[in-house]
Design a binder for these strands. Structure first.
Lengths: 163, 163
DNA sequence: CAAGATTGAGACCTCAATCTTT
DNA sequence: AAAGATTGAGGTCTCAATCTTG
């Protein structure tokens, strides 16, 4: 084990480090490819970007098919600026409408239009079908649930029990 | 169950569909936040974007600290165009050098510079530390390995056994 | 013609200001 | 001052077209 590879000098990354990062890259890369394949199916059906679909689906399951921009930012995990632009595209496509709040004039509500509702249902069942084919079918239903739980728990700062 | 919600018409998303998509959003969102936190630690240490770091790390563990652009595209999961731009930034920062292949004049090799090697080692141990703190510590080492295996297996078209 | 790499245009997000309302 | 939303500038990737080499 000499230095002819040009490594040495100071602090060759230990083999354990290499294995650890390798695992992470396998995981992150796998999730990325999986995501791309799934959303490719959705895009082929409805012509929607991932974030646009996420907003439509959230509104479809929200009371009165509407929610403040604020709340959309939270579910998307985006900055408020990014959320505004997503809403701009959806509004330009006629899938949502903006309505000012009656009680707080700073707040803008995004409301699903009928056309947006149709697209949300179609894209939703397309994604559900893709999920069954690519995940639930090879993995099993409860194994998938466990996977989602583990990851969601990791993403929270330790100490988040109930809501 | 009347239609006053504006839903009905044809094909209300079944409760099973809603649960399925909910699980997926929990999973994908969790991975996204986890990724962001980890790479935030790396960026704070080395000032690197995720894709730049991935290239540096790959080159650091490659024979002769170099690889053809081709191969970088594959590990990144990017188009060749995107890979070119990543290499542009790394070359402008003095972390890699471009060298034409002697045997095939279409091929360009990216080679890690000494400065790039230093950054790769620092960023690598920063990411390894973050991984231990946020994943291996709360989850256990083999549980993490299992997670990576499962996801990587899902991302492959069914029928990829060896290699 | 096919493969490797690059360029330019466009899509999507973030950060830093800004404006309005509370 | 703080909160909600928007705008403009900038970074990162993709697609389509191009150029070179095999």
């Amino acid at each position: 084990m000499d230095r002819e590879t040009g490594y040495g000098e100071q602090g060759c990354p230990s083999a354990e480090e290499v294995a650890l990062l390798g695992r992470w890259h396998a995981f992150a890369g796998g999730v990325r490819r999986l995501s791309d394949e799934l959303l490719e199916d959705v895009a082929a059906t409805a012509g929607l970007s991932p974030s646009s679909f996420q907003v439509l689906w959230f509104l479809a399951n929200a009371p009165d098919q509407s929610a403040p921009m604020n709340q959309l930012s939270a579910t998307l995990g985006f900055s408020t600026a990014g959320t505004t632009k997503v809403a701009d595209r959806l509004a330009a496509a006629g899938m949502i409408e903006r309505r000012p709040s009656a009680t707080d004039r700073r707040v803008i509500f995004a409301r699903l239009t009928d056309a947006g509702g149709d697209v949300a249902r179609m894209a939703g069942s397309a994604l559900a079908a893709a999920l069954r084919k690519r995940i639930v079918d090879p993995l099993g239903d409860d194994e998938f649930a466990r996977l989602a739980e583990v990851v969601a728990a990791l993403a929270r700062p330790p100490g988040h029990h109930c809501e």
